[in-house]
Computed example of a mutant assay.
Amino acid sequence: MIAPRSGGGRGGPPQVGSGRGTLRLRSRGPATVEEQPSAFEERAVAKVDDLLESYMGIRDSELAATMVELGRDARDPDALAEALDSQLGDFAFPDEFVFDVWGAIGDAKVGRC
């Protein structure tokens, strides 16, 4: 964990999050701390990334992570399809693929991987 030097520093106590984070240093802009994905998110992203490769021939973990984020609270495949269309409509994912993504996210939630 990164903490300020003790004594003489300004400000209050350091802000500590969950302890699972990555420090991103950027050439332009400020450094940021990004939270690490949970075990569920890691499993779900891996499964969705595999589905992307099998259906579309691409591997894109960021796209898979976005799809998992959109589908995390989807109660059924139709809700997931609406969420995907609103954010990622340019991809025009087929219904069969959306159903498989919804199943992969559901499997990851209950630990079936």
Rank of each mutant, 00 (worst) to 15 (best):
I2D: 12
A3P: 02
R5G: 15
R5Q: 15
S6A: 12
G9I: 08
R10T: 04
R10M: 09
R10D: 05
R10I: 08
G12Q: 07
P13R: 15
Q15S: 08
V16H: 10
G17E: 05
G17Y: 04
G19E: 11
G19K: 03
R20L: 05
L23D: 02
R24T: 07
R24N: 03
R26Q: 12
R26T: 05
R26S: 07
S27V: 14
R28H: 12
R28L: 13
P30K: 09
V33L: 08
E34P: 06
E34G: 06
E35I: 01
Q36F: 01
P37K: 13
A39Y: 04
A39M: 11
F40P: 07
F40C: 06
E41H: 08
E41R: 15
E42R: 14
E42D: 11
E42L: 13
E42S: 10
V45K: 05
K47H: 13
K47N: 15
V48D: 04
L52I: 14
L52F: 13
E53M: 12
S54L: 03
S54A: 05
Y55W: 14
M56N: 02
I58K: 10
R59A: 13
R59D: 02
S61W: 04
L63T: 15
L63V: 13
L63C: 09
A65R: 15
V68E: 02
E69M: 01
E69C: 00
G71W: 02
R72I: 00
R72F: 02
D73T: 09
D73G: 06
D73K: 08
A74W: 11
A74T: 05
D76R: 07
P77R: 11
A79T: 09
A81I: 02
A81D: 08
A81K: 02
A81T: 03
E82C: 06
D85P: 01
S86E: 12
Q87C: 00
L88G: 04
L88I: 00
G89C: 03
A92V: 11
F93W: 01
P94K: 04
E96R: 11
F97R: 00
V98W: 12
F99G: 12
A104V: 00
I105P: 03
I105M: 00
I105T: 04
A108S: 14
G111C: 07
R112C: 07
C113Y: 12
